[in-house]
Simulated assay, not measured.
Amino acid sequence: MAYLSLFMAFVGLIAPTPSASPNAEPPTEAILAEGLKLYQSERASWVATDLMLATTIDRSQIGGYLTYFRGDSVCTVFWAKGSTGGAGTPLIGSYVFLSQDVRVETSHFQPVGAFTTTEARLFGIRQAALDKINADRNEFPVPANTSLNLDLLDGPAGTRVYVLTGPQQAGIVPIGNDHLLTFDKSGRLTATERLHSTYLPMSQSIEQKEIKEMFHTHLPAHPYITATDICNSLLYPPPGCTQLVVMSQDYVSFFNLEKKQLLILTRKAYERIAKSQATKH
């Protein structure tokens, strides 16, 4: 299978469970759904922040924000500095988008409001995640020219807090230095996972004229593409790039950026296809 790769890099990925059997059915739909939801959350945070900073509101008074899903919408709320975050705490403002269509044109601004019970609970979880990050900078490093972004995905079993590394330079696709903090329904931190073991700020070389794919590999401990891989490829797509390929010992994952589709093949199946195509040329 011939293709032009934008990046080739080895990224170790740590997982809490052993490597999946090459005969196991990949959880393709679950990974794709999580990756797209993570992207929608971070995208809403980006657009809402840009919109808020463009208002006449004094940005020095903004204490923070959080984004969460409410039905088929995704909401980003902003509070003032010094807010405790309890239910009823006044908000500076909030933006609501359709989760499948997060754009400036589809935003709905609410200039007043107060924390709901759900928002107050998520505020507490966000603060607990920040406390964990600030207490252990060795585990949660901040690479040069980056910042850490938090995305909360709430569910019936608890809340998943993803910690993403956001580059402050243009033309960078951040791979790695990402974490997953899991909180139970009572808001107690139950698990902390460092996903990729390293950080790779991928960039296009001067010599590359045409970009078709991004590519990196995972250690055997985690055989599949991650939700963070999907999210970052959509947030920071290099011009012309249409696909992200993640290869491990037993599987090869293909994520189509344009169609937002995911295909996971066994390494053996991938090699058979590659060999078959090679004999045709």
Rank of each mutant, 00 (worst) to 15 (best):
G88P: 10
V74I: 14
V104I: 13
T67L: 06
Y95F: 08
G113H: 11
G85F: 06
D72T: 13
L91C: 09
R103S: 15
I62F: 02
P90F: 05
S60W: 13
F109T: 01
I92H: 10
R121S: 00
I62Y: 03
W79C: 04
G124C: 06
F109W: 10
Q61G: 14
F69I: 12
F123A: 05
F115G: 06
I125D: 02
I92S: 05
F97W: 11
E105W: 07
T84R: 12
K81F: 01
D72N: 14
A87P: 12
I125K: 04
V104D: 14
K81T: 08
T84C: 05
R103M: 08
H108I: 07
W79I: 05
F97R: 04
F123E: 01
Q127T: 06
V74C: 04
C75D: 11
I125Q: 02
Y68H: 15
A120W: 02
R70V: 14
T106W: 03
Q110M: 14
E105H: 08
G93H: 00
V77I: 15
R70E: 15
G88M: 09
G64Y: 03
G82Q: 03
E119P: 03
I62D: 00
G71A: 02
Q127F: 07
D101G: 06
E105V: 08
S94F: 10
A87R: 09
A114W: 07
